[in-house]
Amino acid sequence: MKGTLFRYVVRTYLQFAVGILAAVLSIFLVVDFVDRARQYTGEGWVWNVLVLYANKALVATQQLGPVALLLAAGTSISSLRKRGEVTAMQSLTFGPNALYLPVALCVAVACVGLIAFDEWVVVDAARRVEEITTQRFNRWGDWGVYHTPKQWFRKGDHIFYLRAGNAQEGFENVAILTVTPEFRLGRRLDAQSMRPVEGTRWQLSGVVERSFTKDGQSQVRQVAEAEYDLGVTPYTFRLRPGRPEQMRIPVLREQIRVRGEVGRDTRQFSLVLYNRFSHPLASLPAALLAVGLALRPGRKGHLTVAIVEGLLISVTMWGLMVVTRTLALSERMAPAVAAWLPVVLLSVAAALLWLRGEGFLRSRQRLLPPLGRG
């Protein structure tokens, strides 16, 4: 009996989840196309648009998936309640957990699937969306912010200005500034090329070395070739251009380490790494919160009310994510805290609602004896 009921609730929930995701995804793609239709011109634009929106559908599935899981939780329970099936379950001594557990299992599996889907599918799809938008429809936006090669680096007391090249083959036309603990310029190296030798040693050619003393004097010498220990390895300069959202987890971790070594900001990369897990997982407590609202006493099984409640939870979840992201990028909150705080708050709200439904949380009036009694 329990197995049959469990499978029935799972089937009902999955039907609502798939239907809501398809509806929300269709609305999003249609609205997006109507809003940008004038941008799509040129030879072969029809095929390019089809490829573009096929990839946008993949990206939007990952973004809208948590919302669909949340809305499906409230609407499926409201549907069961509207048909009198929740009352029938209660008459057979089935408690709220008979509804909580199937929904929680479905959402948990979906969350894991969304994380894997983001890692192996959405990352490449988002990159293709940007490539088609920039190269075929000439819409660049903030492309240059993420794809312009990085030239300035700092490691210890060395500041590097690398105008061209890469970490594997070396760099061309470089300037290396050495500063003192008082942040005064102590030495400047200008070289035509800079090649890795071994460890932290580099071969510089066409070198002009300037040394500066505290009293303002300077000395200049020119060297055809020389080796210098610059305190950095080629790995230090392995900065990859591109948006952090379009990088897989191993690459994100590598970029966080590398950028931290050369004194570049890592907050956005750390936040994206944590959000890769926290964003899908936020749908689990949000869905359980929607189930609790749908099961509260005196609640009627209106699907409209369930959708409105789900949308309110979605807006709250989105608002928390926006606020915490802003605080993290402005150095007012750690990226890990910013990513997981919405999940924690939603979990607390869902747990309190479940405890109240189970009768563990009672009002103060019920705990006190009636007036007039000893």
Rank of each mutant, 00 (worst) to 15 (best):
K2D: 11
T4C: 09
L5M: 13
V18M: 09
I20S: 00
I27N: 01
L29W: 06
V34E: 08
V34W: 06
D35F: 13
V46T: 14
N48M: 02
V49G: 01
L50T: 07
V59S: 10
A60I: 00
Q63F: 05
L64K: 04
G65T: 13
G65W: 12
R83K: 01
V86L: 02
P96A: 14
V109D: 11
I115W: 15
D124A: 11
R139P: 12
W140E: 06
H147K: 09
F153H: 08
G156R: 12
F160C: 00
A164S: 15
L177Q: 08
V179I: 15
E182S: 15
S211H: 14
T213H: 03
T213L: 07
D215H: 03
S218L: 07
E225C: 02
P234I: 08
L239D: 15
P241E: 11
L252W: 04
I256M: 04
R257H: 12
E261M: 05
R267N: 01
R267V: 06
F269E: 11
S283R: 12
G292S: 11
L295G: 00
R296T: 00
P297Y: 03
L303G: 06
V322Q: 03
T324D: 13
R325V: 10
V337G: 04
V337F: 05
A339Q: 00
W340T: 12
P342T: 07
V348T: 09
R356T: 01
F360M: 05
S363F: 09
L371E: 14
